[in-house]
Design a binder for these strands. Structure first.
Length: 482
RNA sequence: GGCGACGUAGCCAAGUGGUAAGGCAGAGCUCUGCAAAAGCUCCAUCCGGCAGUUCGAAUCUGCCCGUCGCCUCCA
């Protein structure tokens, strides 16, 4: 389809909203910094990856061929420490947390990356890059490892807009560190006794620093020629030092910088106006949070806010998103049921909104405002935003009674209730649903007799069992409520 | 301390010079024995404060107040 507007995206590198154009034909190569699974993922991670999922869907919608790489930092200091505490090895810790993260991403409808490189699988490439940096005098070897010499790269600080002198003033070399300058960072850490390590000739066995893996893997997978790839993304907290360091590592070895044409950063997610962290006591694992909230509602919640903005997460806001999701489901059911064609134009309005630096909030408002969109466009927009309608959307209400429905009903009504006495005699042969239908019949009988007290008593009893009644002109229906 | 972001109705939030999107919650009406559900309607003379620029500012400038982030591992 034709697009009215070109795609405009905010580029952290230039601090402006720019027209987006791929470097090579219709191909868009994206590298997003993935998880370091030395601890459990939280909702803040989800916000970031959910955004890049929508960006990727939208780029494909516009006809680009997208290659999406999201790395896994599967070796770091924290995992070694955690493994030591738990009497296991770092790779076990990493594997556990990463499996949980992947399961959460599936629940959220985040598509799999095209490439998912693990740092430990790219040790040769990482070492090759370090050797080149040493050879070009950008790195040096000391007692405890190989360090990058920040002073060797004049453009250091450009991406994050940091002043190197000011950084220098606040930094210092810790006891036991051998680097020449406080700003220098480790490319390779020589292994201490008992630490996991990979051989590195002619130097010493050890493990890679955090920043170098992204430089090595993005080059290997997206830009072997060293002429740059299209987009590099991550959370705003990665701009400094992580992305700044990546630039410093990669660009001196490139034929034609910059490393990434467009740098895209997602705003952080706060909880109770604080960054989520264990020390502040507001940490909740993503997997646990997804047990409490509908993953699609969480996606909607994030779509309501500009991706670059700091966002504060509250239980109230997720409740509101749940209501929005219910509305979308209802609209979807109505559209599926109706034979008429519906109005065209929704897709184009959503396209326009997303072209404007991924304004998902406005896109979502179009989705909610449109009275009778065509089913086809409605479905395409939902898919574009990653809120794919599944089979359960078509069910008017939840039809599964709580497991303890019969028990709860017995205690709510009391054993002397006629309906239950009849039920008690053939306890096994009557389903809970049949019992419910019988209660409803009794209530309607009472209503016919204008016995409102009895009618309301039965309705209240069902309500206490999690079943709500709806009296319609066509009869009484029921639904399960939370 | 340095750098940066943000401050729009009870809550979330769009909107970067032309006179306040959308959602949640709430209110009223219709329907109903009542309630729920559903449908309809209403809900910021105003955008943290004070100055200034302008014919005109939530949108630009300055100062102030407040919140948060980065500067150490972090999506």
């Amino acid at each position: 389809m034709g697009h009215l507007s070109s795609l405009r995206l905010y580029n952290t590198r230039t601090r402006t909203v720019e027209q987006f154009a791929p470097l090579r034909g219709d191909e868009v190569r994206i590298y997003v910094c993935g998880l370091t699974p030395s601890a459990q993922a939280h909702l803040g991670h989800a916000r970031s990856f959910l955004f890049f999922d929508v960006l990727r869907r939208y780029l494909e919608f516009r006809g680009y061929r997208v290659t999406y790489v999201q790395n896994v930092t599967d070796i770091d200091d924290r995992s070694i420490a955690t493994a030591r505490e738990r009497g296991t090895t770092f790779d076990v810790v990493m594997a556990e947390n990463y499996a949980s993260f992947k399961a959460s991403m599936r629940r959220l409808g985040v598509r799999e990356p095209d490439e998912e490189p693990y740092a430990t699988a790219y040790i040769p490439q990482i070492q090759a890059m370090i050797r080149m940096l040493i050879g070009k005098q950008y790195a040096y070897v000391v007692e405890d490892g190989v360090y990058y010499s920040v002073r060797a790269f004049p453009r250091y600080g450009e991406l994050s807009r940091r002043n190197i002198e000011e950084l220098e003033a606040g930094a210092r070399i810790e006891v036991g560190e051998y680097k020449h300058d406080p700003l220098d960072f480790a490319l390779w850490k020589f292994a201490k006794e008992g630490e996991p390590s990979w051989p590195f000739e002619p130097y010493r066995a050890g493990r890679p620093g955090w920043h170098i893996e992204c430089s090595a893997m993005s080059r290997e997978l997206l830009d072997p020629q060293g002429v740059g790839f299209d987009m590099h993304g991550g959370g705003a907290d990665l701009i400094f030092p992580h992305h700044e360091n990546e630039v410093a590592q990669s660009e001196p070895l490139m034929r034609r910088p910059p490393m990434a044409n467009t740098w895209i950063h997602g705003g952080l997610l706060l909880f109770d106006s604080r960054k989520m962290s264990k020390s502040l006591g507001n940490f909740e694992p993503l997997s646990q949070l997804l047990d409490r909230h509908d993953p699609q509602a969480i996606r909607l919640l994030f779509l309501q806010t500009g991706y670059r903005k700091v966002m504060n997460f509250t239980e109230e806001s997720i409740g509101a998103a749940g209501s929005v999701l219910d509305r979308l489901k209802k609209t979807y059911r109505l559209l599926r049921a109706s034979k008429s064609g519906g109005d065209k134009g929704l897709l184009q309005r959503v396209d326009e909104a997303l072209a404007d630096d991924m304004n998902t909030a406005v896109a979502l408002s179009h989705l909610l405002q449109e009275e009778t969109p065509s089913l086809d466009e409605f479905e395409r927009v939902l898919t574009l935003l990653g809120i794919e309608p599944h089979a359960s959307w078509l069910e008017e209400t939840a039809v599964t009674l709580p497991a303890d429905f019969v028990e709860r009903l017995k205690s709510a009504l009391g054993p002397s209730t006629p309906a239950l006495r009849a039920f008690a005699q053939d306890d096994k042969s009557v389903s809970p649903e049949a019992l419910l239908e019988r209660i409803i019949a009794l209530r309607n009988e009472a209503r016919t007799n204008k016995d409102w007290a009895k009618s309301d008593q039965l309705r209240d009893a069902l309500a206490s069992c999690g079943v709500a009644l709806h009296d319609t002109s066509g009869g009484t229906t029921w639904s399960v409520v939370a």
